[in-house]
Design a protein around this nucleic acid. Structure first.
Lengths: 158, 158
DNA sequence: TCTAACCCTCACATTGATGTGAATGTCAAG
DNA sequence: CTTGACATTCACATCAATGTGAGGGTTAGA
């Protein structure tokens, strides 16, 4: 397929597909007229790139990481330098940290949303899809006070 | 404490602490001479900010999300507008996606590293030992240079 | 008093991921 | 042949997160 189709199917601007190529993340073939020619698997690959990008990994890292994510590892095993392995391990650990941070934060947000929902009534009732994680702590609800703001706790209403 | 100490204790450049303040993520007090005065909790808060930043969240979002993390959420419950709640839910879902993507990728990397370790060990790209897994395609082993990675390979994506 | 180590603000530079547009080529359909 | 949709490259613009430095206060210690 050409760039337009890939763009539509992945929801990714053409500009970005060219950029990923420039960064070595995606290397399409070229047809006689110079048009980029993408193969079916590129759809998933692009999705994956975007996911990682969106998770905070720079293209430089994604480039190293990508070849390992997509199966036939045996192919790549031979070409792995110790530096690459080391980098991957570092990156894997960083990812673990990100994951932990994200999980903590997400759960906290879930708890908060839950609390608000229970407290402020179902004005914003949105039913399905909420997996109901752990229950939050106790809550008392004083009137809204967007005032003093010490060095912490900025007001939500801002 | 003042900015220097906070900087040291969090490993964050002073410049960044001022930037976070400019972005409304951290609002220190001021002592008479105009110096920023941070309180103890700022240490954790800064660490949290950096974690989220590093996980790909923009300051704009972190600003909304922060008040729900840690502390007495009840304080904020009253001031939460439906828009804020909606934003938090969207953001929570995005975080879940990031988490899933990161977990998949990390696990894939782990698997890869494992495979390499089992195979030849990280000597200078040598195929002395083992094809280990199923190898459907040819196995070419260029010296040490990371190859251009042809446009194939499918995925683990969302 | 001088100096060093802090702090301040202001402002421009840089990098990575993007947006956007200009100038042009290719190709199918009217 | 012309038009319109698509493609190309090139290049500059933007935005967020940082780096860096100029120019100048404050404060503690020699």
């Amino acid at each position: 397929m050409r760039i337009g189709e890939l763009s539509e199917r992945t929801g990714t601007p053409r500009r970005m597909l060219r950029y990923y190529e420039e960064q070595g993340l995606l290397v399409p073939g070229r047809s006689a007229n110079g048009y980029r020619e993408y193969d079916e698997r590129c759809v998933d690959r692009v999705l994956q790139i975007r996911g990682l990008l969106d998770s905070g990994l720079p293209t430089r890292v994604i480039k190293q990481v990508l070849p390992c994510l997509n199966q036939p590892r045996a192919i790549h095993v031979a070409g792995a330098t110790p530096e690459t392995i080391a980098l991957l391990e570092r990156e894997r650990d960083r990812m673990t940290q990100r994951i932990e941070c994200l999980v903590r934060s997400r759960d906290a947000i879930s708890g908060y949303v839950e609390a608000v929902r229970r407290a402020g009534g179902p004005g914003t009732g949105e039913a399905a899809g909420t997996p109901a994680l752990h229950a939050p702590a106790a809550l008392h609800a004083p009137p809204a006070v967007p005032e003093p703001a010490p060095a912490y706790d900025l007001a939500v209403s801002a």
